[in-house]
Design a protein around this nucleic acid. Structure first.
Lengths: 343, 343
DNA sequence: CTGAAAGCGCTTACAG
DNA sequence: CTGAAAGCGCTTACAG
């Protein structure tokens, strides 16, 4: 009966012998300000409740040019990092009265651009985007139009926007320093091809730590893989790092999935972790504490990041009622486990 | 310019000096069947493309009573199992021309019921639901109304519907047999409180395997935790199983998250896995092959499950063009790793 | 306080 | 082949 016996506004109006206007007003909590009698209001509300009235969102959205919906565009909903963001964003948005529309760009800038347009056409009221960072034009358009949006996890350095990101530079520096403090000197970095600012910052953090310890930068120790093909490339990368005995005594992996496949490969090669090669991971998987060895990781504040993004967005949608800082760089946390040995 | 310079149907019609009807027809690929000249069609299509015309989905949906959208209701988008389903469903649906609306029920039947209604109000054309299995009434309503939907991962045994699930009984039986073949005889089961059919089947599979080996069922070895509070309860549960020396020589965990927290607890107690206690997991986490020890797991065919669900649903939405089996029980796969020792 | 009316942007018989 | 018109279900000035 959910579909068939649908009640419409006009049905309520007819049955109760009031105008559609009155019904609409009351059901939108505008009864008092329009001085509709308490009696009439109660009558309408009771009837609506009893008959399970729910307004057709399409009609409502079309009429008001609004939808009480926000869009979330992420690279990939299957990735644990982004699915956690999705979960927190959904929860927070729901608490504030908004539904969220998710979509994955699969790191494809064209698809991301399409998604942005498609979401606008669905009349979302705002957008949270973990961008491929290759859609500056679209981002600028949104800004021009004063369309509310906030970038999450990844931002554009050459455009002033709302954003919530993590401090990639310091996270990466801290974890590299951790290896240095433990006496490691030949530190490899397995990362992605630059393009994402976050990845660039992780590289810079690594540099900076080495620099503080007066260690000359050896570019042979930095391997940049492609996003699409990292699973194959990592074998070569690790082969490269281990080409000569003692060429490397530790590896920083700059994403959780690089860590997973990297560790898998190290195990296949019977490399002892951490004795021969210590490893650390930027970002983690939920089982990293159970892995052999438990992996020292930089943990990102996913929940805070998500909540703050939603707060900034909805505050803007609702007309800047509160004074919230609209650019945020959050601290990560180093979780020390056993993949680097001990002091 | 995405928002402001929006082009509407009437703009195109006016500029090109044709009717709105013509524009709408052509843009919906009904130009030929309405015998609109190739010339006019080309003119319209070119103009639309050039000016980035995208129809307002709200208006279109309202007018047609359709939305080219399907809804996916899952317990929790943050859970890796469901986020994978979401990813595959999104991909498959997109390939077939549909957008998907996700929402998490958080295992709350009321919320699930609300979500169903809310999605209907957004005019989704069909629903894929991993249900809490406590909304039989809503499910029956959908059936009565002939509203297209398919249950995924969890189905109602007392209602005939479309569904795609995994063979929980045999998956569980196989993994229990695996332990038996390795000589384990005191096999604990850490599972959830019954309620979900899948969980019930896993229990029955466990029973059946024990039965085949003439092992008397000991109910002290089966511990049923609550979904909300399993993290705390698991400590007690494992304490219970290990209360007496040699009370248990192996444990079957019936979900991936129970395995994670269980193994964490076993490690905390310095129980040697698999020497003292072997463990197996129903369903897995992506790092289970890296865990210490790598965990023998029942792997669910998530991708197939998702794809088939979408196929069944869209086939029904589009009027049963193809003859597809509408109830499917898929095989799981036992991935033998090291958490049970070897023969 | 109320009701008739216009409008949101599209689709789709229907008459020509 | 084309165009005027009604309709999807709601919201919201506006006149009373």
């Amino acid at each position: 009966m959910l579909v068939m016996k649908k009640v419409f506004l006009k049905d309520i109006a007819k049955k109760l012998d009031v105008s559609k206007t009155a019904v609409s007003l009351v059901l939108n909590n505008k009864g008092d300000e329009n001085k509709i009698s308490q009696e009439t209001q109660k009558k309408i509300i009771d009837y609506a409740k009893k008959h399970n009235y729910v307004p057709n969102q399409l009609a409502r959205g079309l009429s008001r040019g609004k939808s009480e919906t926000i869009g979330l565009i992420i690279p990939n909903i299957s990735d644990t990092f982004y699915s956690k963001i999705a979960g927190y964003v959904e929860l927070k948005a729901k608490n504030l009265g908004y539904t969220v529309l998710f979509s994955s760009s699969n790191e494809d800038p064209k698809k991301e651009a399409e998604l942005i347009r498609s979401m606008l056409n669905r009349q979302v009221e705002g957008l949270i985007i973990a961008s491929t960072q290759q859609n500056l034009k679209e981002i600028e358009s949104l800004k021009e139009d004063k369309f509310p949006f906030v970038l999450i996890d990844r931002h554009y350095t050459d455009s002033e926007t709302n954003y919530v990101i993590v401090d990639n530079f310091n996270g990466s520096k801290t974890v590299t320093e951790h290896l240095l403090k433990l006496g490691r000197r030949k530190i490899g970095l397995i990362t992605l091809k630059p393009g994402l600012e976050a990845i660039k910052q992780r590289l810079l953090g690594y540099h900076s730590a080495l620099n503080d310890y007066n260690i000359e930068f050896n570019k042979n120790l930095v391997l940049e893989l492609s996003t699409e093909n990292y699973e194959d490339e990592i074998k070569m990368a690790i082969g490269e790092l281990l080409k000569f005995p003692n060429s490397v005594d530790s590896i920083v992996f700059s994403t959780h999935y690089l860590t997973s496949v990297g560790l898998r490969e190290l195990k296949r090669l019977n490399v002892k972790v951490p004795q021969e090669v210590a490893i650390v991971s930027f970002d983690e998987l939920s089982a990293f504490d159970l892995v052999d060895p438990p992996i020292t990781s930089v943990i990102q504040p996913v929940k805070d990041m998500s909540n703050i993004a939603v707060e900034i967005l909805i505050n803007e949608i609702e007309g800047m009622k509160e004074n919230i800082e609209n650019t945020r760089i959050l601290d990560s946390k180093l979780e020390i486990r056993k993949s680097c040995g001990t002091f």
